[in-house]
């Protein structure tokens, strides 16, 4: 009798184990299916409308009615916005994070900075866009590349900072001790930490770039939209996410097709930068101690 219940018990545990494995595989399979359908749809629908002109020309006057031209304005605009945002964000994030691991290590201030970064990470980018727009209105300015960069900086800053933070956290304490034991100041320690975490920083930069180039909500109010290439920081500028969004919103199938092509271009850009980030993490850093 007793043996029997025990056998039942084992059978039940084995059954639960198999059930959970099935559920887990099912969940991953579902996600894989969704990803496959996403990539496939973007590829199939995008390739149709993709042309050399899409990549190399700015929109003609009747572009949004189905006329000629391309979305070079959006491609260049997006790259400019993302690059600018990464530059601004890293100017704050890199020294800020190094501070968190040297001078500020273990203080309450640093704990609050981390919390702030987590809050900013979760903040909808439309909120950043709306805030920057309000400031623009106060100052009597119009939408511009600069304003778009500022809004995207807010989007990217927490991503860059928290990712880099985790990278620096992975630096072995042995390195900190070995450096300090030579009589270094904390500034020199910060430099050494930066050196050791350089590949991780590069990966974080690419991740941030990927996010900056894909975010449409932050630039919606701030960067504006134009059919020309940006000439100065104070001109409005087009961006890929908005190019997709606006073209999909028109009633013309030909224009909608071009939205799919633009989505394909954006996807490829994101994949390429994601790949760079992966390579940076695994192939860079000749002197880094592993």
């Amino acid at each position: 009798m007793k043996r029997n219940t025990r056998r039942h018990h084992y059978a039940r545990r084995r059954y639960v184990e198999r059930l959970m494995i099935g559920l887990m595989r099912g969940a991953l399979g579902l996600a894989a299916l969704a990803l496959a359908s996403l990539l496939l749809v973007i590829l199939v629908r995008g390739v149709n409308a993709l042309s050399w002109a899409m990549l190399t020309e700015t929109p003609a006057a009747d572009f949004y009615l189905g006329g000629g031209g391309g979305i070079l304005n959006a491609i260049v605009g997006s790259l400019a916005l993302a690059l600018g945002a990464i530059l601004c964000a890293s100017l704050i994030a890199v020294p800020g994070v190094l501070y968190m691991h040297t001078y500020g290590k273990g203080t309450r201030h640093v704990a609050i900075v981390r919390l702030t970064l987590d809050v900013l990470w979760g903040m909808p980018s439309i909120v950043f866009g709306a805030t920057i727009l309000t400031v623009l209105l106060w100052l009597g300015l119009r939408t511009s590349l600069l304003a778009g960069i500022l809004a995207l900086t807010l989007v990217v800053l927490p991503i860059l900072a928290r990712t880099f933070d985790e990278v620096v956290r992975m630096v072995p304490t042995d390195l900190t001790q070995a450096t300090l034991a030579l009589g270094t100041t904390r500034l020199e320690l910060a430099r050494m930490l930066l050196r050791q975490s350089m590949p991780g920083l590069m990966a974080a930069l690419f991740l941030a770039f990927e996010r900056a180039i894909g975010d449409g909500a932050a630039v919606l109010f701030t960067a504006g939209y134009t059919n020309t290439l940006p000439r100065s920081l104070l001109d409005p500028v087009a961006s890929l996410p908005l190019a997709i969004f606006f073209q999909l919103g028109t009633p013309f199938p030909a224009v909608q097709d071009r939205a799919y092509a633009a989505a394909l271009i954006l996807t490829v850009l994101v994949l390429v930068f994601g790949m760079f980030g992966y390579l940076a993490l695994h192939k860079l850093g000749r002197h880094v101690i592993r």
Binding site: P172, D174, L175, Q177, A178, T179, L180, A181, L182, G183, T184, T185, M192, R195, Q196, G285, H287, V288, I289
Partner: peptide, 20 residues
């Protein structure tokens, strides 16, 4: 930093700096 300059240390595990 001056203390650690005058009193050096050799750690348990060798740990070169990420330099040449």
């Amino acid at each position: 930093a001056a203390v650690r300059t005058r009193i050096g240390m050799l750690a348990q595990k060798p740990f070169p700096l990420p330099l040449s």
